[in-house]
Amino acid sequence: METKLLTVSHSPHIHQVQSIPRIMYDVVIALLPALIFSVYVFGLGALMVTLAAVLSSLFFEYVIAKYIIKRKPDILDGSAIITGILLAFNVPSNLPIWIVVIGSFVAIGIGKMSFGGLGNNPFNPALVGRVFLLISFPVQMTTWPVPFQDRMSFADTVTGATPLSIIKEGIKNGESMTSLMKQIPSYTEFLIGSQAGSLGEISAFLLILGFLYLVYRKVITWHIPVTIIATMFIFSGILWLGNPEQNMDPIFHILTGGAMLGAIYMATDYVTSPMSIRGMYIYSVGIGVITILIRVFGAYPEGVSFAILILNAFVPLINKYVKPISFGEKVKNG
């Protein structure tokens, strides 16, 4: 009797359900609350910028994969959608659409596909796009719409400065800390998110909510975000204790700007972060320290993007020299 041939393969014969698309869509889900809140705060502009970034990212990924790299495009794996959302989250909600599209092109085309696509890019694509825009269009990239104003219009909104730039400018002009503190919102408002700033970075609370979801779904581990925030807190705390008149307190630092967004969603990008837990600590401490250095001593009011990109460059080196401790390597059997 001719029986059906059996399939053979090497063990293991079972596999967990988590796949690349599932991981990517989990990240999208984690980002949704912050996106919805952002639309609520900034209005139509936020929605349009995000849509433009996502759609143009998908478009560029498809075109480049199909016609330049000549590989079967796999745009639905979700990675381009995340790049698009993260890019949008890092720009003001009143940014002209054509600038957003340029950002997507740089992010996907130069930041990701030129290195061979998903899995090969040394730098976080969204941040490559963002930093490119920041340097090329400094005016448009640093005029932030004021929350809850002109929510239905897109182009001409009332603009204001972010808390970080208020402080930076103020200290430069020699204003006293106490008077500066009056110009910025309270910490509760930071946590909820009624502050001026890039589209997705405003609500620390909702970003942390997304973080908890990602940890629960085992998409990321706590190591990188917690270490970055802790480093920023400790380092800025030391500076603050040393000179409270010139420096902001640590709580301010971790709640404002791109700290939460960067630590939770950008620094944890699989492709551009270290492979070992010890490596992750080194990487995260580096990001935390450089962020505060740029914020306090640098020319820019915000430094998370630069810090992450700088440490991205160190990841191959970290991976080479910081290996996980293997079983039986450090024996302490008394």
Binding site: T221, Y270, V271, S273, M275, S276, K323, P324
Partner: peptide
């Protein structure tokens, strides 16, 4: 493709990569 998610490193009971 490998997306370097480090999951294999994290689950390896022998601490390998």
């Amino acid at each position: 493709v490998c997306i370097r998610c480090t999951k294999c490193v994290q689950v390896c009971p022998m601490g390998l990569e």
